[in-house]
Simulated scan of single mutants.
Amino acid sequence: MSIAALPPAVVRARRKVAVLVVVGAMVVGVAAWQAVARTARVGTGSSMWTPTTVLSGCASALGDAGEAFTVFAQGQTIHVVQSVLNTSRIPVVLTGGGGDALSVVFETELDSPGSVDDWTGTEDTLSRVAVPPGREAIAHVTWPADAFQGSSGVTYGIHVVPITVSALGVSRAVKVPLQGTVLVMPSVEAGTDAFRDQLASVCGP
């Protein structure tokens, strides 16, 4: 039985079709990979801690996170610990964001914090942390005492933590809501009448 050779034009056409199929599959694969990476999400974790007094019943209008959680006064370093939950189905890497004054670092262990009251900032921490699906990273968020300036009666509200989320090589900046608003009153000393009056004006009767 003889085997007839295909005409050159037919061979070239089949090669062109094969190349187009391979390229098309690569484009679909890259698109699917990008789509999966961009579905990576993180959210507010189960716990929030602070070394200062936790407020009760302060429905501050300064933030979008509901009631105020704590307040810092003149000369106090702002330090809040918020767990960050990986709500996606793939592992993510979290990197602290913010400006020159803001510091966001993560504990080396997931899900449960160390001693918040005794934290000095010299403990072993990570600037980046890998978080499997359904697990929580423990973020320490700090500003120096002089990061906030204001005239008498000025109150600042902090209600998000800037973090960069990376998954499958795709990174994007997000703002994770705190469980409660952090109030900062840089012009008054804690425990004074001025402090109590200003807090009452912010929280209401």
Rank of each mutant, 00 (worst) to 15 (best):
123 E>D: 10
42 V>P: 02
44 T>G: 09
106 F>A: 03
53 T>E: 15
122 T>Y: 15
141 V>S: 05
82 Q>F: 03
4 A>D: 10
8 P>M: 04
83 S>E: 06
93 V>S: 04
7 P>T: 08
133 P>Y: 06
62 L>D: 07
43 G>A: 13
135 R>I: 08
82 Q>G: 05
87 T>Y: 00
73 A>F: 10
97 G>N: 06
71 V>W: 03
8 P>H: 04
116 V>Q: 10
118 D>M: 09
22 V>K: 03
97 G>E: 02
34 Q>A: 13
92 V>W: 01
126 L>I: 00
60 S>G: 13
36 V>Y: 01
60 S>F: 05
117 D>E: 15
77 T>A: 12
55 L>A: 10
90 I>P: 02
85 L>T: 00
143 W>H: 09
141 V>Q: 06
34 Q>T: 10
116 V>L: 08
54 V>L: 00
17 V>I: 13
93 V>M: 04
14 R>K: 15
105 V>A: 04
125 T>Y: 03
86 N>A: 07
79 H>L: 09
77 T>N: 03
8 P>W: 04
92 V>P: 06
28 V>R: 14
107 E>R: 01
93 V>F: 03
16 K>M: 12
30 V>N: 12
42 V>S: 10
116 V>H: 03
104 V>M: 00
119 W>L: 05
36 V>H: 02
42 V>H: 07
55 L>C: 01
107 E>Y: 06
101 A>R: 09
83 S>A: 13
9 A>V: 14
62 L>C: 10
71 V>F: 09
96 G>R: 00
127 S>H: 01
100 D>L: 05
94 L>P: 03
25 A>Q: 06
9 A>E: 15
51 P>K: 04
111 D>W: 07
109 E>F: 13
93 V>Y: 07
25 A>E: 11
123 E>G: 05
129 V>H: 05
101 A>S: 14
65 A>D: 05
1 M>W: 13
135 R>V: 08
8 P>N: 10
99 G>D: 15
100 D>V: 00
98 G>F: 07
114 G>C: 12
91 P>Y: 01
78 I>A: 02
118 D>W: 11
12 R>K: 14
124 D>G: 11
